[in-house]
Amino acid sequence: MTTLQRLTLTPLAFALAAAVSGQTLADTQHNGPTFSGNVTGGVLDVSDRDLDLWAFRAEAGVGGIYTVNPSLRIRYDLVADFANAINSVDEQTWTPGAHRQDDGEIYIRTARVLLLTDFGSFGFQPRVPSGFWGQIYNNIDVFEYNRFHAQTGQNAIFGQAEQGSDVLSYGTPRFGGFQFIGAVLTTNAQNDQDFDVYTGRLIYNQGPLNFGIGHTQVRRPGIDNLHRTSFGIGYDFGMVQLGGVYEHNDDRENSGAASDFDAWGVNVSANLSDAWSVSLGYAENNRNLDLDNDAWVGIVRHHFNDKVYGFLEAAHYDRTDNNVAAGLSVSF
């Protein structure tokens, strides 16, 4: 075991030992399993491509929590994404879970176990949606199809991925709305390096204000030393919500590469009534090699209740294909 591995696992061993002392597994209480999911389907029209029926989301999963004692809870989640198996993905389109364009396969979107203790949360997550994306970019990630993250094919504006794999994480307890989360990821199991990605973020979320700042160091094939710094902020005025994010990607091996760029986005959303809501967003990057791009996106939603809504979304890109999407979303 390396020194880094010892430093990573020793706090976990201490916290777990303290939490379970005097408690047997037979005393645990199980809240679950709870089943949930979402199906969002409709029509996608991308410029220079045939109109297509599309599964924007199609996922179902199970989760629950074992309470060992007041100091230790064990949470589990397993979620499968079926959109990739439903859609016919090409280089003009993308599907959740299909960032490697391996269409036709059911994608395991979430497979994780979390230890929730008085000393913080410890995550063992072979597959999981990126908390970095979800907590820093969330104020602009409000659309059904045009989501801008690094795994959206030609729609990608930002360098940050939305899906992570092989994630070992730790989150501190919350202090006055603040929380720090650190994680390491193993994205390549054959490069003689246990951890390929190091990331940390400081999050604040209390009342109408939320913001987060984070830094990530990435090593992957073709990129040996990429540093990404991100800052996101949002404020909820009640009827209107404002959000923004800025991302700086520093490829310290090659500043002229496509991976070295800045990107930013802003969004305004409004609840017009209990039944109607709208959002308008703008995002751009300044990628090298004539790969820069910008986009305007707007969406109108009609909410039948808190589980069902219909939507109409349209996006205009400077360099890549425009699109229009319409459909219905049902959660259960």
Results as ranks from 00 to 15, higher is better:
F178A: 08
R174N: 05
D141P: 04
Q151L: 14
H149W: 13
Q151F: 07
G153Y: 06
D141L: 07
N155D: 09
F148G: 01
A183W: 06
G176S: 14
A183D: 04
D141V: 09
A183C: 02
P173L: 02
E162K: 08
V142Y: 00
T172R: 02
F148C: 01
G171L: 08
R147T: 03
F148A: 04
Y145T: 07
Q163S: 10
F158C: 11
D141Q: 09
R147G: 02
L168R: 09
G176I: 14
G159A: 11
Q179M: 07
A161H: 03
R174W: 04
A183T: 03
P173C: 13
H149E: 12
Q154L: 08
F158V: 10
Q160M: 10
F143W: 01
G153A: 06
E144G: 04
F175H: 05
Q154E: 12
N155T: 06
A183F: 04
F143M: 03
D141R: 04
Q179H: 01
A156N: 01
G177P: 02
G176E: 15
E144T: 15
F180E: 12
V167S: 01
T152N: 00
Q160P: 06
T172S: 14
V184D: 01
Q154Y: 07
G177R: 05
Q163D: 06
A156Q: 00
N146T: 14
F175M: 13
H149A: 15
S165W: 10
Q163A: 06
G164A: 15
R174Q: 10
E162Y: 11
F148R: 04
V167D: 05
Y145M: 09
L168N: 13
G159N: 10
G159T: 04
Q179D: 04
V184R: 09
H149Y: 14
T152Y: 00
R174E: 09
G171H: 04
E144I: 14
N146V: 15
F148Y: 10
I181H: 08
T152S: 11
Q163G: 03
V167W: 02
Q151P: 12
V184H: 04
A150D: 11
N155R: 13
Y145L: 07
G176W: 12
F175K: 03
R147H: 02
Q154A: 08
S169A: 15
G153F: 07
G171S: 15
Q151M: 14
N155E: 13
D141F: 08
Q179I: 11
G182E: 01
F158I: 14
A150Y: 11
F178W: 10
L168T: 15
G153N: 08
V142I: 05
F158E: 07
